Simulated assay, not measured.
Amino acid sequence: MSGAVRTGDGHGRAGRVLSGLAVAVGCVLFLGGFAWGAVLYQPYTVPTDSMAPTIGRGDRVLAERIDGAAVRRGDVVVFEDKVWGKVPMVKRVVAVGGDKVACCDRGGHLTVNGEPVEEPYLADKGPASPTAFTSTVPTGQLFLLGDHRMSSLDSRVHLSDSDHGSVPRGAVKARVDATAWPMKSFGMMPRPAAFEALPGGTSQPGPLRLVVISVVAGAVLILGGAAYGPIARRMGRRGRGGTAAVEGGGARV
């Protein structure tokens, strides 16, 4: 009489169920994350170096679609304005309706309502603007500057316009949340601390991190669940080989 070592298939069935569940949940997270991101965010390519070094020429950015009412000082926004050429532009909001913005004080700083603003993101180490200016921003408008003040064509160029160089809040299409390309520049867009003390404070980042986490977690679950089948079959073949060895070497009565 010979004895055979057998293993139940209960664990195998449970594994298959769990792997299928992992793939299903992974698909929901992966596809849902992509859909969520597509609804909230739009990619833009910045064609100039006017926002360097924050955003370089040719960089690809992800901008959250927002209403202009949500814009705060310090935000980097995508906007279109017919006076500026009716093409998408990327600039930084330094003042909002009712603010008096000027440059430069004795320390070379930009001032908003008389308060100097530290701007560590500027490309140039000298004054915050190579040309002096003063403007009172009309209600409902935004005053925008590039971070590369030596080359940026921004609100300073339009000071003689009826809106004193500003654009309507409604011209804003999106707020830049991250740089997506090139990889060396990949990362979230920091919110400058210099504007926090001013009325209204600064804005909070959008849900881009959650979107990325959802997509990555979904991909991991899909790959993990899909890998269960081949791994289980390989382990099963090894187990059957061990069983055969036990059967072949068993004692006879």
Results as ranks from 00 to 15, higher is better:
Pro138Arg: 04
Asp177Ile: 04
Ser155Cys: 11
Asp75Trp: 02
Val94Gln: 02
Arg156Trp: 11
Glu64Gln: 15
Val112Asp: 00
Pro127Asp: 06
Ala197Tyr: 05
Gly165Gln: 06
Thr179Gly: 00
Val117Lys: 05
Asp75Ser: 01
Cys103His: 13
Ser135Asp: 02
Val83Asp: 14
Asp177Lys: 02
Ala194Thr: 08
Phe133Lys: 03
Val83Tyr: 14
His158Asp: 12
Leu198Asp: 07
Gly107Ile: 11
Gly98Trp: 15
Arg156Ile: 14
Ala193His: 09
Lys86Ala: 14
Ala69Thr: 11
Asp75Lys: 02
Arg169Thr: 10
Pro182Tyr: 10
Arg72Tyr: 07
Val117Trp: 04
Leu142Asn: 01
Ala197Ser: 12
Val71His: 02
Gly85Tyr: 11
Val101Asn: 07
Thr139Trp: 05
Gly85Cys: 12
Val83Lys: 12
Pro168Lys: 04
Met189Arg: 00
Lys91His: 15
Met188Cys: 05
Pro120Ser: 04
Val176Met: 00
Arg92Lys: 15
Pro138Trp: 04
Ser152Lys: 06
Glu119Gly: 05
Thr111Phe: 00
Ala174Lys: 00
Leu144Gly: 00
Thr131Lys: 10
Asp81Leu: 09
Val78Gln: 00
Gly98Phe: 12
Thr111Pro: 00
Asp67Pro: 02
Arg92Leu: 15
Gly187Asn: 06
Phe79Trp: 12
Leu142Ala: 04
Pro127Ser: 08
Ala174Gln: 00
Leu110Glu: 08
Gly68Ser: 06
Ser160Glu: 14
Ala178Thr: 03
Pro88Gln: 10
Gly74Arg: 01
Ala193Arg: 07
Arg92Glu: 10
Lys184Trp: 11
